[in-house]
Design a protein around this nucleic acid. Structure first.
Lengths: 361, 361
DNA sequence: TTGTAAGCGTTATCAG
DNA sequence: CTGATAACGCTTACAA
């Protein structure tokens, strides 16, 4: 053995050329092996792979993207990435994406217009397509900051004429639930709404009001509270409700998380659910069936939403059609009523009553 | 006006050259404007920016990465991306990352070795560094598939001598909680453990056993149940416990999610918590304080974990030191005991007793 | 089946 | 302050 060479702390990264040289072939052949396209003689292939393994070589993503014009990555820009809803949405997208060999670049905007625009301007050459969810900003204004012709799908956006969109049937779900409560005989149904500017929250409120009206119930302003979709805001709203001169019969919360906070407040106030007051939520997050009492809610097909979004994006990315050809078609995903004990049922929680929401499409 | 040109459905993407030509400068100058490094005369700058805006030009990420050797992106590879814990972890990392102008590429591995390896081999030239969490696989074996010299931080790994690691003090948290329960007089304390191969789960079990021993309590095998960290598995475990000939005094669940499922099962079985049986969890996820009764748990500084991981990664990415210079130092983040009503306290939930966990470092 | 060589869109070096 | 121009690491005609 010779003297051990003094280790160079920064050996240059190993490139396709190194592999080619050591394997005694041209870079083209190495490239062919790694992009598994053109045929390569089995023996050469083996030799190349052996050398590559030895050198721990892997192709450089950026370099590859430069020539292929593909990054194998999609961007996902959400207002927030925490919480059951977003978490599951991301998972749904991620699943669908990797199944097709795509990476996922996530980013949250906190609904700040400037942040969204900054991200939008920085993604060219990093992603092949984008899933954009901005329930508080209107997509119209954002699209101007997108790299031209970047395939994009909108999620739960205020309707956009420019971008194809996928939404949850917020309105239908809300009317169904409030209608159900009214049908059960509840008369004073409170709304625990979401953020003022949030598109989903507005739609759910619209559904609430419509259902009250068609049930012939008055829409009392003092029964419309507002939260921010967090447990804490639900808790505080519950406290306020409990102090009301005339207690409501029922509370329809714009999401499960707030409903759970509300349940806690009502319990502390000594108000039995559903005995004194019924509670219902929206989303059907996993814990909903384990609350005390189990929570009636509107099931949102979050996973399906993520999958569907990716599928449509993939279609847009692969079908090389000019994006402006036809007006993008939007679709709406149906929700389902899930009735558990929190609104007065005595049904077993393992077999919830499931009423199909209307399919809007 | 001339005849409207028939729109080319695939106009070539606009590059730095287009901007240069229209602005009457060289590409170098345009580059300088967008990489805001070398000085450019204010007037030229404006002109270039104007043209760029007009053309909706933004620099091509991949091309840029090729020359700069930087992607401004970090990879985050987790066993799973759903659930309170991971969701919050990702948020913590994302926050820290964007603050420094980094994008985040996420990926979940489902703890499949082959999936992890596949991802590892595909990230060269896509990320500048990696945060790797694989509580069920040992990092040692994985490191061989990493691109050479890619800065990497391990999270809650089975200790690795090769990679710097950051972990939660699972053991300390568990001993503290079980010790607390024993101190309160509970004698038959059950363990609702996590997945067999999961590192965190094992550490928490180790803490449980150690605490029993130092409290002079027997470690009865029938009191050690196993779950998979999901609500459902906690629920089923609760049912099993309820059917036991001799009911335990208390249950220590290896995470809050299982504890919540367990609570539901105990309630259904008519066993009062904490009257008949106490329950405690681990993590202190947001809903923990809103369960019925509010859940005693071990607070894990998830957000801090994410932040810290990114900070150390950033350090590794910027300090151009040979990664093998010194043995990587690991650190452990302390946990806190959060005592609420589920283990017998009558304290107000808004002011939980917080006992500092030991700082292991 | 394999090799040669021309890009891909930037940045960086070196002159002006 | 600005302009040429050579990389960067890879893919892909086109040839052999």
């Amino acid at each position: 053995m010779a003297e051990p060479e003094p280790e160079d702390p920064f050996p240059p990264a190993v490139t396709i050329r190194d592999v080619a040289r050591l394997a005694g072939v041209s870079v083209a052949t190495v490239s062919r092996v790694f992009s598994r396209k053109d045929p390569v003689r089995e023996e050469t292939r083996r030799r190349i792979l052996a050398v590559a393994a030895e050198l721990r070589y892997s192709p450089h993503g950026a370099a590859r993207s430069l020539t292929t014009e593909r990054t194998e990555t999609i961007g996902v820009l959400l207002p927030e990435i925490h919480g059951e809803f977003f978490s599951e949405l991301i998972r749904g997208i991620d699943r669908a994406a990797r199944r097709r060999g795509y990476h996922v670049l996530v980013s949250s905007s906190h609904s700040e217009r400037s942040e969204v625009e900054a991200v939008l301007r920085t993604i060219r050459g990093r992603v092949d397509g984008l899933i954009l969810m901005s329930p508080d900003l209107d997509a119209e204004a954002l699209v101007a900051h997108l790299p031209p012709r970047l395939p994009t799908i909108c999620l739960n956006c205020r309707g956009s004429a420019l971008l194809p969109a996928i939404s949850i049937d917020n309105y239908g779900g809300a009317t169904a639930m409030v209608g159900h409560l009214a049908g059960r005989g509840y008369r004073r149904i409170a709304l625990l709404g979401g953020p003022r500017r949030n598109f989903d929250a507005r739609e759910r409120r619209r559904g609430y009001r419509a259902a009250l009206q068609s049930a012939g119930l008055a829409n009392e302003p003092e029964l419309e509270l507002r939260g921010d979709f967090s447990e804490g805001s639900g808790y505080r709203a519950g406290q306020r409700l409990a102090r009301l001169a005339e207690l409501p019969d029922a509370v329809f919360a714009a999401n499960d998380t707030m409903a759970i906070g509300c349940l806690a407040a009502l319990r502390e106030a000594g108000l039995a659910v559903p005995g004194r007051i019924a509670v219902a939520g929206f989303d059907d997050i996993p814990i909903a069936r384990f609350t005390s009492p189990p929570l009636s809610t509107v099931r949102v097909p979050i996973d399906a939403l993520g999958n569907r979004a990716f599928d449509r994006l993939l279609q847009a990315m692969t079908s090389r059609t000019a994006p402006t050809d036809s007006p993008p078609d939007s679709e709406t995903l149906a929700t389902e009523l899930v009735i558990r004990e929190s609104c007065g049922s005595a049904l077993s929680q393992t077999a919830p009553t499931v009423l199909k929401g209307r399919k809007v499409s």
